[in-house]
Structures are given as C-alpha cells and as structure tokens.
Design a protein around this nucleic acid. Structure first.
Length: 263
DNA sequence: ATGTCCACTAGGAGTGGA
C-alpha cells in the first residue's frame, strides 16, 4: 500500500498536476493540503473519474485539506469523516481533516506558516501546534495504526534545511517550533522518512522565488507520521522531487509529494 | 535574500498570503 502527502497549492491551478501524480504513483491514500477552495467547489467528479474518493475540509481562497482514498483499494468499504477542523482553532482556517479508511485513521494537516517570528501569526502558529498536540493526546491511540500527513511548516533538525546556520532562530527553524514538533511526536508518532533514512538530506519544499529549486535551497517541511505499528510495516519513504519540476509546461506546486510504501 | 505563484476583487492592476 502507498500512502502520500502533497501540498498542491490550489486544486484549481493544479488539478491536472494532481491527477498526473495519482496516475503515476497510484497511491492508495493521499493527504492533500492547500486546496484553496471550499467543499462545494471541490472537483469531486474529476477525482471520482480518476478513481478516488475524497473527504475534504475546505474554505474559500486559502488553506483547505483533504484525504483521498483509491476506490479500487476501498473496494466498496467506507471512508468516513472523523474530524473536520482542529478543535478550538477554527479562526486559523481549515487545516485539519481526519478520515477512517482501510482499518486505519489518517489525518491531513496544514500548519499555519507564521510569517516571521516577530509577526502575530507566529504566536498563532505555536498555539495551533499546541492544540494539535493536545488533540492527538486526547484522540490518538498509539497502539493502533494511525497516519498523519501534512505540511508542518517547520524544520525538525538542521539536516532538514539547506542553510540551518543562516536561518537559526528564524521562521521554520526556531526552538519554539521544534519543541512543539517533539511534543506532537510524543503523542505516539514517528517521522517515517527520518526513521527509514536517518542520515539522508532530502527536501520537500523550495521557494518559487530566486531560483531556489535549481540552487537546491530547500527545506523538509512535509511529513508522513505514523504510529509504531505503521513504522513496523513501512518498507520505504521517498520524496519525489520530479513533481517539483514543470510538466508539459504546467507550473508545479512549490512542494514535492512524500510517499511511503507500507505492507 | 527574494529573480514567483495564487486567489480575490473587479472588470485592470493592486493586495495579501505563502
């Protein structure tokens, strides 16, 4: 089974690109972020035609998250909505959705960016991460198979940044963000990529500006997390940077997808 | 640090967000 997470930076702007990704990898479960549309305008028919069902939590213009399930794999079984929105954090936008499918719980998250450490949004980001940790402490059973996929907008360790020294203490690289990251993992989750690739430097996001992709100015901020039982069944985890490149002259997302193969 | 991209409001180009 393949599980993926992909911040696609607008479904409307990236539908073809997203369908290309589904056709290439044929993932069984997918967490999407930054849909940038509401539930009513989510192109359900296009995904159905591509063989996927979607559980969405969208909003107009910004944010928006979804979990996709491949119809062939679901084989008539349900994919049900468990949670839409992080409790107490509605003002931050549509940034969490949890579905139950194939005997496991899967959550797509889009953590607030925070802008700058001096900006009011940074405090909002930390509060959101605290609320996420609390939510998992309450609702996630670490003895059961659970997966969390998403854009966390933070760099867990120096190896996950192209320039850790230059960015130390700046946005995505602060101790405050890393403390929250550890608290979230402490609820019973592991970073599947880092567990399988302890010393590999691989990035999942490159700024659109300043030719960052070609200069290899990237960060690893997109993660697939799993409980222990998921880790035990994880064969490999890859970040497919081919999807950060233009395809048939279509503009890519600024993120690349992360894919895990799970037995 | 910044060479880009997206959506909204409008009905063209400016603004906010990333």
């Amino acid at each position: 089974m393949l599980v993926a997470t992909f911040n696609i930076n607008s479904i409307n702007a990236r539908l073809d690109f997203t369908l290309d990704f589904l056709a290439a990898w044929k993932p069984d479960l997918v967490c999407l972020q930054e849909l940038k549309l509401d539930n009513a305008t989510f192109p359900r028919l296009a995904f159905e035609a591509a063989g996927y069902r979607a559980v969405t939590h969208g909003q107009m213009q910004w944010n928006g998250v979804a979990v996709l399930g491949k119809l062939e794999t679901l084989a008539g079984s349900e994919m049900e909505l468990v949670q839409a929105g992080l409790p107490g954090q509605d003002a931050a936008g549509a940034r969490l959705v949890t579905a139950r499918a194939l005997g496991l719980t899967i959550t797509s998250v889009y953590v607030p960016n925070g802008k700058q450490v001096t900006h009011p949004d940074f405090r909002m980001k930390l509060a959101w991460l605290d609320a996420l940790a609390e939510h998992f402490e309450k609702t996630l059973d670490p003895r059961t198979p659970a997966i969390v996929g998403g854009d966390f907008n933070l760099v867990p360790e120096d190896i996950d940044s192209y320039a850790p020294a230059a960015h130390a203490g700046h946005i995505f690289h602060t101790d405050a963000e890393r403390e929250r990251w550890k608290r979230i993992l402490g609820t019973g989750l592991v970073d599947l990529f880092r567990e399988k690739e302890p010393t590999t430097q691989a990035f999942s996001w490159w700024d659109y500006r300043a030719g960052a992709f070609h200069k290899k100015y990237g960060l690893r901020i997109d993660f697939l997390l799993g409980t222990r039982s998921v880790l035990e069944r994880t064969e490999r985890v890859v970040i497919d940077r081919e999807f950060r490149k233009k395809r048939s002259n279509r503009i890519p997302s600024d993120h690349a997808p992360v894919i895990a193969e799970i037995r």
